[in-house]
Amino acid sequence: MSKDENTLILGIGGVGMHLAQRLVHEGYPVTVIESDSELLEAAAESLDARLICGNAMQLSSWREAHAQDMGLMIAATNDDSTNMLSSLIADRFGIERKIVRTRSIDLMDGSILSPEDLKIDLIVHPEELVAQEIFRLVQRASCNDLTPVGDGNMRVLAMRINEDSPLLFKTPKELSATHSEYNFRVMAIARGISTIIPQAEEQIRPLDQVFIMARTEDMMPLMDMMKIEHKNIEHMMILGGGLVGKRVAQLLEKEVEIKLIEKKPERAEELATKLNNTEVIHGDGTDANLLVMSGLDSTESFIATTGDNETNIISCLLAKHLMNRNNRDL
């Protein structure tokens, strides 16, 4: 992407604002079309970009933005249909690349309308990305996550170190000496927010996430030799039945027993009909009594996915206080 290539952003909400700030910071010329005058006023205070008060569905706004001179269009409004139709409009104006943000996953593989039909070069599903990342973290937090690499010839074991772990306070050098009959390597250690490429004398500490690579045929015997159990999270509670909460439940409900708490009665009823293997509970997730009555004490993982950051933080703190912290993850 050339530094002098013009970028048109539709929508200056959370996603649009973040993208605009990043692009401006890196020196790209940015033009924004936004219909909300209050958002534009707030953006004008911190954003060095051309801001146009207009509607993405009005061609006059596109002409005012000189859309024919743009090399990239990013549709980041809160309306999926507007974003998708904007790609067709951008194509008519000759904009070479079109990136569209959508909340719905209906345009994924198998949809009647493909991205090519809508002239979309890249579709971004923020909620889907968040749900997939939560899914990945849950699998990793389940204690031991085995991932195939190298065309399946190798396996990477990711495991959380607790006080009973046989790897606790051991070093890669000691592990290699003790289990010399297997070829393996301690590839990395995730400690807090840091990732360490361990030296031979690096000691494994409590709460570390350790990544071990070995040949596929050696991994299970190696785990048995190290007395490492391959276990999974069996019970989970999700707070919030929005797009992210619903998608996380869909991804995990065949493997994990899930209880989902939703505050809105209509949404709770809808989720109950669409999630076949998830127990949907109508109630307020910040209510300690509700959490306890819903089985929080037997839950191994608690995930807050409401649309309110304060609610997510408070509910996680409350759940952390109420839960037995042995092998629990939030």
Score class of each variant (00 low, 15 high):
residue 230 H to R: 09
residue 108 M to P: 00
residue 63 R to A: 12
residue 83 N to K: 11
residue 23 L to E: 10
residue 245 G to V: 05
residue 234 E to S: 10
residue 17 M to R: 13
residue 41 E to P: 00
residue 330 L to Q: 05
residue 44 A to E: 14
residue 52 I to R: 02
residue 228 I to S: 00
residue 306 T to P: 05
residue 313 I to T: 08
residue 32 V to P: 01
residue 181 E to T: 14
residue 324 N to A: 05
residue 170 K to M: 03
residue 311 T to A: 07
residue 205 R to N: 10
residue 234 E to R: 13
residue 39 L to Y: 09
residue 80 D to R: 07
residue 230 H to P: 00
residue 27 G to T: 09
residue 288 A to S: 13
residue 3 K to R: 11
residue 327 N to E: 13
residue 202 E to M: 02
residue 272 A to F: 01
residue 145 D to L: 11
residue 204 I to Q: 04
residue 213 M to W: 03
residue 292 V to F: 07
residue 312 N to M: 07
residue 274 K to N: 13
residue 227 K to Y: 02
residue 111 S to R: 08
residue 9 I to G: 05
residue 323 M to T: 12
residue 275 L to P: 05
residue 139 Q to Y: 08
residue 91 D to E: 11
residue 2 S to D: 14
residue 250 Q to K: 09
residue 61 S to G: 06
residue 299 T to P: 01
residue 11 G to W: 10
residue 203 Q to W: 02
residue 40 L to M: 08
residue 304 A to D: 07
residue 120 I to E: 00
residue 92 R to S: 11
residue 23 L to D: 12
residue 148 P to D: 03
residue 19 L to H: 08
residue 22 R to C: 14
residue 55 N to L: 13
residue 45 E to D: 11
residue 25 H to E: 15
residue 49 A to T: 04
residue 213 M to Y: 04
residue 196 I to S: 04
residue 185 R to W: 02
residue 274 K to E: 15
residue 204 I to P: 01
residue 20 A to H: 12
residue 202 E to V: 04
residue 253 E to H: 08
residue 219 M to R: 04
